[in-house]
């Protein structure tokens, strides 16, 4: 498959700091590309540069065959953006917001009515088409925003924390729809989220930290690279337990202590767990064995929980 977004050696520096330190990656046509990283990692700066909103210090960005630095308007016409903050005009009706968008993006006049109905149907807002946006709930506004982002049939849809502030039902509905879009229309999606369970739907994930990309791979591969299962336990005396676990694992340093929790990784938890229980002289108060999640991947790469990293 051809690359829809090609980023090469992209840099952005401000007076003192280097926000993005020469990153390169490709997003293939039709894939969902997850972009993860804590606040201040350079995610927003990168997205703003890709969306032509910010001038890179150096490096090149090509989207849908257009150079983001020189052919700005072609790039703008090729992409749709769903921002995390509200960018609707609340004083206008849903219909007016959508009509304006059609005009900004030169949607053919005779196709506008059909497309507006289509996107409103998708997000289930047909009933409130002629109501002012200020009367909408947060979830309805979000849905309208997504509908609007699809009106001009973008080749790439940027979703920047699209489900923040939505109830679980709406969130689920939204993802269902996003997957449907991908399947039926082949729209490429560029997604940032810090709900890691949501990032699982990505075909590939890039993890960004401190201005650089530290890993790009499929969620499965990233988790597989971590190696084995994860055991988390807490005991009546964690210091004692730590020493004993250390002794059991030998030189291996594959365990971390996070608050009250000892976390370790083993190839095969079934065999290991009985050894562990035997080896511990202190009482186990909590024990959890599971397959690695993206949060573990995140933790392994950045040394932080994405939850603490983003401050949520």
């Amino acid at each position: 498959m051809a690359a829809m977004i090609e980023v090469q050696d992209l840099k952005k520096s401000y007076k003192e700091t280097e926000a993005v330190k020469g990153i390169s990656f490709e997003v293939e046509e039709g894939e969902i590309f997850g972009f993860l990283g804590p606040n201040g990692a350079g995610k927003s700066t990168t997205i703003n540069m890709i969306c032509t909103m910010l001038k890179p210090t150096s490096g090149s960005i090509v989207i849908n065959g257009f150079n983001a630095n020189k052919e700005k308007n072609d790039v703008r016409a090729s992409i749709g953006l769903i921002f995390q903050e509200n960018t609707l005009d609340e004083k206008l009706t849903a219909n007016e917001n959508l009509k304006l968008h059609c005009r900004f993006y030169n949607v053919p006049k005779n196709d506008r009515e059909r497309r507006i109905q289509e996107v409103l149907h998708i997000v289930d807002l047909n009933d409130v088409r002629y109501k002012k946006v200020e009367t909408f709930s947060g979830g309805m506004q979000r849905r309208l925003e997504i509908a609007r982002g699809l009106l001009h049939y973008p080749r790439v849809l940027f979703l920047d924390e699209p489900t923040v502030g939505l109830d679980p039902q709406t969130r689920a509905h939204l993802w269902e729809y996003i997957l449907k879009l991908k399947k039926e229309q082949g729209i490429t999606m560029f997604l940032t989220t810090h709900y890691l369970d949501e990032a699982e739907i990505s075909d590939r994930i890039a993890i960004m930290d401190q201005g650089g990309i530290i890993a790009v791979d499929s969620p499965e591969e990233l988790k597989r690279q971590l190696g084995g299962d994860i055991i988390e336990l807490s005991t009546s005396d964690n210091a004692q337990a730590e020493a004993e676990v250390q002794a059991l694992l030998g030189e291996s340093d594959e365990f971390t202590i996070n608050d009250e929790l000892i976390r370790l990784q083993v190839e095969n938890s079934d065999a290991f767990i009985s050894e562990l229980i035997e080896a511990l002289s202190v009482t186990i108060t909590k024990l959890n064995i599971r397959k690695p999640t993206l949060n573990d991947v995140f933790l392994a790469f950045t040394g932080r929980d994405i939850g603490e990293a983003t401050g949520t």
Binding site: M53, R76, L81, T87, H101, F104, R148
Partner: peptide, 14 residues
């Protein structure tokens, strides 16, 4: 302030 300028600025309107 209300974010709408973003919608205008990311669009291909010259």
């Amino acid at each position: 302030d209300f974010g709408y300028m973003k919608e205008i600025l990311v669009s291909p309107v010259s």
